[in-house]
Amino acid sequence: QTVQFNGLEYHFPNPEEAEKFAKKVAKELGGEVRVKDGRWQID
């Protein structure tokens, strides 16, 4: 599972970890999490 933001990609072994990370980062950055092409993106 991949999380993308600021032009970087973070890879996680399972979707739960990816989701948790994506939501944490979005909260800290005040961004929005969305899934695109099977990847988590933070904008």
Results as ranks from 00 to 15, higher is better:
Ala18Lys: 01
Gly7Cys: 15
Glu16His: 09
Gln41Glu: 12
Glu17Arg: 04
Val35Leu: 15
Gln41His: 13
Asp37Pro: 02
Ala26Ile: 07
Pro13Trp: 08
Asp37Val: 02
Phe12Val: 00
Ala26His: 04
Ala22Leu: 05
Val33Glu: 03
Arg39Gly: 06
Lys20Gln: 11
Gly30Thr: 04
Glu9Trp: 11
Ala18Trp: 02
Glu32Phe: 14
Ala26Gln: 06
Lys20Leu: 12
Thr2Phe: 10
Ala26Ser: 05
Gln41Asp: 07
Trp40Met: 03
Thr2Ile: 15
Phe5Thr: 02
Glu32Cys: 15
Lys24Gln: 11
Val3Glu: 00
Glu19Ala: 08
Lys27Gln: 11
Ala18Asn: 00
Glu9Arg: 10
Val3Trp: 02
Gln4Gly: 06
Asp43Glu: 12
Leu8Met: 13
Glu19Cys: 15
His11Trp: 13
Asn6Ala: 10
Gly30Glu: 05
Arg34Leu: 09
Lys24Leu: 10
Phe21Met: 01
Asp43Tyr: 15
Ile42Tyr: 03
Glu16Asn: 07
Leu29His: 11
Asp43Ala: 12
His11Glu: 06
Gly7Leu: 04
Tyr10Asp: 00
Ile42Glu: 02
Asp37Gln: 05
Thr2Glu: 03
Val35Gln: 09
Lys24Ile: 07
His11Pro: 03
Ala26Pro: 00
Trp40Ile: 06
Gly31Ile: 13
Tyr10Gln: 02
Gln4Asp: 07
Gly38Tyr: 02
Glu16Thr: 10
Gly7Phe: 04
His11Ala: 07
Asn14Met: 03
Gln1Asp: 09
Ile42Ser: 02
Trp40Ser: 02
Glu16Trp: 13
Gly7Asp: 05
Pro15Val: 11
Gln4Arg: 12
Glu28Gly: 05
Lys20Tyr: 10
Ala26Val: 06
Tyr10Met: 06
Pro13Cys: 14
Gly30Ser: 06
Gly7Ile: 02
Pro13Ala: 11
Lys23Pro: 00
Asp43Gly: 08
Val25Ser: 03
Gln41Ile: 15
Gln4Pro: 02
Phe21Asn: 00
Gly7Glu: 04
Ile42Asn: 02
Arg39Pro: 03
Glu28Ile: 12
Phe21Asp: 00
His11Phe: 12
Gly30Arg: 07
Glu32His: 12
Lys36Phe: 07
Glu9Asn: 09
Glu32Asn: 11
Lys27Ala: 13
Gln1Tyr: 15
Val33Gln: 02
Glu17Tyr: 04
Pro13Thr: 12
Glu32Val: 14
Pro13Asp: 13
Val35His: 11
Asn14Pro: 00
Leu29Pro: 02
Val35Lys: 07
Gln4Val: 15
Trp40Val: 03
Gly31Thr: 09
Pro13Gln: 11
Val25Lys: 10
His11Cys: 15
His11Asn: 07
Val33Trp: 08
Glu9Ser: 11
Asn6Gln: 09
Tyr10Leu: 07
Lys20Asn: 08
Glu19Pro: 00
Asn14Leu: 05
Glu17Ile: 06
Asn6Leu: 12
His11Met: 08
Glu16Val: 09
Val3Arg: 01
Val25Leu: 14
Asp43Ser: 13
Ile42Gln: 02
Thr2Asn: 03
Gly30Val: 03
Arg34Val: 13
Asn6Ile: 04
Ala18Thr: 01
Lys23Val: 08
Val25Glu: 01
Phe21Pro: 00
Ile42Val: 10
Lys36Tyr: 07
Val33Gly: 02
Glu28Pro: 03
Gly31Cys: 15
Glu19Gln: 07
Ala22Pro: 00
Thr2Ser: 09
Lys23Thr: 08
Pro13Phe: 08
Gln1Arg: 13
Lys27Pro: 02
Glu17Asn: 03
Arg39Gln: 09
Lys36Leu: 10
Val25His: 04
Glu16Leu: 09
Glu28Tyr: 13
Arg39Trp: 07
